Amino acid sequence: MNQPTIIFVTGTDTGVGKTVTTAALAASFAAAGATVAVYKPTQTGISGEEAGDMDEVRRLSGIRSVTEGIRLAAPMAPVAAAELENRKLPSLTQHANNISELLGSHGVVLVEGAGGLLVEMDERGHTLADLAGSVKELARVLIVVVCRSGLGTLNHTQLTLEALVHRGLPAAGLVIGSWPESPTDLERGNLRYLNSLRVPWLGSLPAGASWLAPDTFRERMPHYLHLPRTWLET
């Protein structure tokens, strides 16, 4: 790819499937011939040598260039988790510099957020939305919103989309992070509604996708995610 691209993966909530979506995006871009790096500014709920989200992305996608900005043990929002350990969170500028460095040797950099779009990442109250805005001069910036399939997802998705538009960062794509094998009428109705929004629909990842063998995951994910041709232009 001649045009460097930064893709921010955010969610309507925690536990919606951001990590498996990030891995699926990484596998899809790699299958299209792109050089891919993945960065998670703040990883919480993991300590020591435990496997975190970036380890899962590496395992599933096969992408080797995966890094964290900071790792904190408590399963809490970054600011609260850092306070418990009396540690200083990286600044917005540090995160932007880390992304810029990755862009020097990769055509696509995926950035996976923690929790939702407006979870604070540092002591000054900066969020993933602020980070996305701060790197717009470095590359094309795309924001993918991962949502649930079930009850409550319509309101949470619309709130996230509205927050993005308010900040001049309209979403570039929507994904359901875990689509059940036997969806309910409610879930099928939610899917129709999400497809009707003025945001590109990228697809639904099957529930349990992270349990697939890595080779199977890499083979199948490009068929579940339908990336716009413009994202893959060389």
Rank of each mutant, 00 (worst) to 15 (best):
M1P: 13
N2R: 13
D13V: 03
G15E: 12
T19Q: 04
T21M: 02
T21A: 09
T21D: 04
A23P: 07
A23R: 03
A27L: 00
S28P: 09
A30T: 13
A30C: 09
A32Y: 05
A32I: 03
G33Q: 06
M54F: 04
D55F: 03
E56S: 14
R59N: 07
R64Y: 11
G69Y: 02
L72H: 00
A73F: 06
A74P: 01
P75G: 05
M76G: 09
M76A: 14
N86K: 15
K88P: 11
Q94D: 14
N98R: 15
I99Q: 04
L102V: 02
H106V: 01
V108D: 09
A114W: 06
E120P: 15
L131P: 06
V135A: 07
V135E: 05
V141Y: 04
V141H: 04
L142A: 12
V146C: 00
C147W: 00
R148E: 10
H156G: 00
L161N: 02
V165K: 15
H166K: 14
L169Q: 13
L169C: 07
S182L: 14
T184R: 06
L186H: 12
L202F: 06
L202G: 02
A207E: 14
R218V: 00
H223E: 15
H223Q: 15
Y224Q: 11
Y224G: 07
W231G: 04
E233K: 12
